[in-house]
Design a protein around this nucleic acid. Structure first.
Length: 195
DNA sequence: CGTTTTTGACCTGCGC
DNA sequence: GCGCAGGTCAAAAACG
């Protein structure tokens, strides 16, 4: 997989499929969706789940993320689309090349479990946000196809600011408005491909 | 000594 | 109903 060295990479840099949680993530498909539909970053994949696409850059060579505006349900030939429901968990996936195998996201996490995953030599680690009344969870596991990379799955939205956030250009994660946010030494950016 | 991690047990959903 | 896999709980241990 070729990761963009450009500090503000574009989706066009991706043409890659990888497997995670039994879902195929196809970045070329993201491209298709974005160019065909009013710039809203949507991602479809080959199972009855949903996810989104966005992108991340950081000094740690973080290179991928996701976040939903609308959902693609079903297989490639029978895709149904619906708006994201309020109660749907928001899921972000980051693929990170990091020396300590964790994505430093500025939040404080408490580990609550570890499980071996079928078909993967690497266990999955479960974490909850340490902030009181915040129910955000994250899962961390190594990419089976590329063990030097780590896949971090976030579920939910924090009900509080990151202890380390120093800048964010919007209060929510509406991808039509959020483009970058920063904390500590990291800058994260979501980029949309041009129509 | 308070907080976090570890780890086996338990729970739940799904396919057969 | 049963077994499996993934997710969570919670007591004990480790850590700072």
């Amino acid at each position: 997989m070729n990761y963009p060295s450009n500090p503000n990479p574009n989706f066009t840099d991706f043409d890659e499929t990888f497997k995670f949680d039994d879902y195929d993530y196809t970045f070329q498909m993201i491209m298709d969706q974005i160019s065909l539909e009013d710039h809203s970053p949507t991602l479809s994949w080959t199972s009855s789940e949903r996810l989104v696409a966005a992108e991340v850059t950081s000094p740690l060579q973080t290179s991928l993320a996701s976040s939903p505006m609308s959902l693609e349900i079903g297989d490639k030939d029978g895709i149904k689309k619906r708006k994201r429901h309020k109660e749907d968990p928001i899921i972000h996936v980051f693929k990170t090349k990091s020396p300590d195998h964790s994505l430093d996201d500025g939040y404080k996490w408490r580990k609550y479990g570890k499980k071996p995953i079928r078909g993967s030599p690497h266990p999955r680690h479960y974490h909850k946000c340490s902030s009181p009344n915040c129910v955000v969870k994250k899962k961390i596991e190594k990419d089976t196809n590329n063990p030097e990379y780590v896949l971090t799955t976030y579920e939910g939205i924090h009900n509080h600011a990151s202890p380390s956030v120093i800048y964010c250009d919007s209060d929510d994660f509406d991808l039509s408005s959020v483009n970058t946010w920063s904390f500590q030494t990291h800058t994260y950016s979501l980029s949309h491909s041009a129509p």
